[in-house]
């Protein structure tokens, strides 16, 4: 464990808590893409299949359970909670995320560390996480204005991946055998997807204006 990875995991955890807080406190999920949340739930379930078989550390196990439960709780809230689901921007959240699922699974079958069920699902979860934010970014573009909690959520998600890139650089130099190419390359692509959002987020912060993404 290094400081970059710990910072990344904490940022990721905070991003999920910010989202849960927004939904719970405002009883609204406007501006949040249900499709992105469903993709994240799939990412965690597919990645943590080893939750009960491989014990790595107490921290690792706890965080996996927290991520799985929180992502499922968010999807449940947006789908089933009778008050929250009314504020879901169904007509704006139209990204065809099924294509992302099929493509990522196809790539995972071809490019993986070892052709086993667990490794294919792990690679699938890595690729899917890289593109999971797309429905959310499209929804933000469409809805124009970004309320600050949703903006902070996306910003923190980008920050978590940026910290992980520092973690891979650190591990590359520290460990003699670096074999995290699948995570590192996929993580780079993921962070690049946030770049434009970061740019507009920084502009709005600098001009102290409301965050407006160009339509």
């Amino acid at each position: 464990m290094n400081i970059f990875r710990l910072a990344g995991d904490m940022t990721h955890l905070i991003s999920v808590l910010v989202l849960l807080l927004k939904i719970y406190a405002t009883k609204s999920c406007s501006g949040i893409s249900l499709k992105t949340q469903e993709l994240y739930a799939m990412v965690f379930v597919a990645r943590y299949l080893d939750l009960f078989t491989d014990y790595i550390s107490f921290y690792n196990t706890v965080m996996k359970i927290v991520f799985i439960l929180s992502s499922l709780a968010i999807v449940w809230c947006m789908r089933m909670h009778r008050v929250v689901k009314r504020s879901y921007d169904k007509e704006l959240d139209t990204f065809r995320h099924n294509i992302l699922i099929v493509v990522c699974f196809g790539v995972a079958v071809i490019i993986n560390e070892k052709f086993t069920l667990r490794e294919v699902f792990w690679a699938f979860s890595i690729y899917l996480e890289a593109v999971a934010i797309l429905p959310q970014l499209v929804l933000l573009q469409r809805s124009g204005n970004v309320d600050n909690l949703t903006g902070q959520y996306v910003f923190l998600l980008g920050g978590y991946r940026a910290f992980y890139i520092l973690n891979w650089i650190y591990r590359y130099f520290v460990e003699q055998r670096f074999s995290r190419w699948i995570s590192a390359i996929s993580g780079l692509i993921q962070t690049a997807l946030y770049a434009d959002f970061f740019y507009y987020y920084f502009l709005s912060w600098k001009n102290n204006a409301k965050l407006h993404l160009p339509a």
């Binding site: 080893d50 790595i56 550390s57 965080m63 996996k64």
Partner: peptide, 10 residues
């Protein structure tokens, strides 16, 4: 091939 190292990252 050697066993892929366990994925210790979240």
């Amino acid at each position: 091939s050697e066993q892929p190292q366990s994925h210790d990252e979240l």
